[in-house]
Amino acid sequence: MNLQSVADKLYTSQTKVQELEKVTALYPGLTVDDAYTIQKLCVDRYLENGDALVGWKMGLTSKAKQVSVGVDDPIYGRLLSSMDLPSAEFSTKGLIHPRIEPEIAFIFGRELKGSHVTLRDVWLATEFIVPAAEVIDSRFRNFSFTLVDVIADNASAARFITGDQVYSPGHVSLAEMGVSLRKNGEVVQTGAGAAVLRHPVRSIVELVRMISGIGESIKPGMVVLTGGITEAVSVVRGDWIDIDYTGLGSLALQVR
């Protein structure tokens, strides 16, 4: 089996906005390692076309999502410059079935690497934290996938936005930081930071441990989305989303 051809299929799906059958249905033998290789090969196509790697995202960081996919561990994906929304609105054009989830993003001032990284190492390397929202979009029909599929599909990464205002890493207790998400004025999701692996900082530790296995690291200036604090909310054109992060302000997003 040729991993490059699977990556090419996903690249076409992502860029031409075409739904795909699960890659595990086409190639039943694919492993998790294969899936991460496919993810990298696919992202390389973007980089060849002038895009840039600006950070990482974590997925399957909540118990509920891990149970729904039948795994015990989170996964990671790659964030590209082209996914970074320049303003508080985004178009559903270019997306198949977008969903929004509130997250906390860490912004790094120093490189963070190695399989023995600790919580303290993460805090020392973190320059700022910032409220963020991720627009996820599985390229698979009905958002239905196995672990291998979603890893190959760059952990469903599509778009992301970070708030205007950054905060120092110790500004609030992130575990108990409340989040509420309103869709068209109505509270539809609430949660607290502990939904992300008991504390978002643990998500960074998991990420660094995973990517150090392939010789990668978090570089100075990179952003990391630590994982959804509530369930993801489906959106369509015309929806407006307001997310409140206790002590960290709010984010508003208009869906065009």
Binding site: K63, A175, E176, M177, G178, V179, S180, R182, E186, V187, T190, G191, A192, G193, A194, A195, R198, I229, D244, T246
Partner: peptide, 23 residues
């Protein structure tokens, strides 16, 4: 805007915010 983390026998089971109560 009160965040909340609930645990049973030491394991986290859910999180929420007081905004869940009618906003």
């Amino acid at each position: 805007r009160i965040g909340m983390v609930m645990s049973v026998d030491g394991s986290m089971v859910d999180t929420g915010s007081s905004a869940a109560v009618l906003g």
